[in-house]
Design a protein around this nucleic acid. Structure first.
Lengths: 221, 221
DNA sequence: GTCCCGAGGTGTACTGCGTACACCTGTCGT
DNA sequence: ACGACAGGTGTACGCAGTACACCTCGGGAC
């Protein structure tokens, strides 16, 4: 179509991100990506080794979008802000979660992010031992997402009779679901993801603070 | 080969589980599954609607393997035991985590599991409100797994020079990794997944207990 | 005993995927 | 002016999931 500037790794990665943003992860095939770039599929392989490395590269782009760490605050504020910053990025790019979940090699960009997060705990006086456990406990929450029990929160069935039957078969689920839809923060019977996320995050941060204060050690001698 | 008994949904699901157990999730294609059953691929579609529902069915099989809930104990013991029971099942079936992560509809089997777990909190006197938040906070941990930051714990590079360079570039990661490999519970420089899991689980259960004791409510009025 | 009907198994075919491999082409250092 | 080589091309292969038309039995109704 237009004047086709030379391809390069960055152009490929940005196009991939934009395609995944716009049309979803399923639409991101090497073929479709090439088409978007006005190029033949195999041309991409001159810039990324394979699809796996394309996805790795997309994660690089992602990480670069996360706001830089706060400086000059206590560990808790810093960690909380950083995690929520990561979360904002992930929410802008819905494809990011499944992609992160399936990464298998740790790229330097990812290592850099982890390093900065770890640095916050260490700067806050956490022992390396405790920091290690704490990072594991955070798990994917350090990226700003949680694996929910299920993605779609039980699409309400058309037939009210079905709903009644469900409520009968699973009374506890029903009761709790009812409680959550009375919640003021919820929009329409669903629940507020952000509030749930922060609830759990603060729960963990509280726990971390307490253990830190008590001089916790993995060797309970 | 042998006398081919009639196919049915259960035989298909069990064969799928066994194939995934033995050869990994990647090897589980409709074609290969059919082959294992001595049948043509399209025959499977008489018993499951499509691959997605095959995977849903495999989760049913999984859930059925989880030990039944303890009765007559406090909520904390019951929840802890149940989650660890789920974890044992998941560890027997490495394919289960990625499959659970990608499920999109909630089948009755899954709802049943959730219902039982929710019941434990409610029986322990948790408000429906708190129970709701607590279940979200548990997230995938209720299934006995956590999304780790990355799967393979940084395969140690052959070249020691690379390792030194990495340690230089990411000093905090390096320090914490070093601390974890001194840990007695770790085997060979890696870290003990089970210990990390229980650490985080107990952290959350502690938090839950504290909030419950304080009569926590989502309306901080 | 005959017949038919429907559940269950078959065969063929389509689209789309990732990517190997051989090839062409335009640019730049000499 | 030329050769090398980075970057774009074309063709092809194997594997996926699955639509659709077909065949084949085994068992109930008469």
């Amino acid at each position: 179509m237009e004047v086709r500037t030379r391809l390069n790794r960055e152009r490929v990665l940005l196009a991939a991100v934009s395609l995944a943003d716009g049309e979803g992860l399923d639409a991101l095939s090497m073929r479709r990506l090439a088409q978007h770039l006005g190029v033949v599929p195999m041309a991409l392989y001159k810039h990324v080794a394979n699809k796996e490395q394309l996805l790795d590269g997309m994660v690089e782009v992602l990480v670069a979008e996360i706001d830089p760490p706060l400086v000059g605050t206590d560990w808790r504020t810093a960690v909380r802000a950083r995690v929520l910053a990561a979360r904002r990025v992930l929410r802008r790019h819905p494809w990011a979660r499944p992609v992160l979940e399936t990464r298998v090699v740790v790229t330097p960009a990812v290592l850099g992010y982890l390093d900065q997060t770890i640095a916050m705990f260490r700067a806050g006086g956490f022992s390396d031992d405790l920091t290690h456990h704490v990072m594991h406990a955070l798990g994917s929450r350090a990226w700003g997402f949680t694996q929910e029990l299920f993605d779609t929160p039980t699409p309400p069935p058309e037939d009210p009779a079905v709903l009644v039957a469900l409520a009968h078969a699973f009374p506890n689920v029903a009761a709790v679901a009812a409680a959550s839809s009375h919640d003021s923060s919820a929009v329409d019977g669903g629940c507020d993801d952000q509030a749930e996320f922060e609830f759990a995050l603060d729960l963990m941060l509280d726990g971390f603070a307490r253990m830190h204060a008590q001089g916790w050690t993995s060797r309970p001698g």
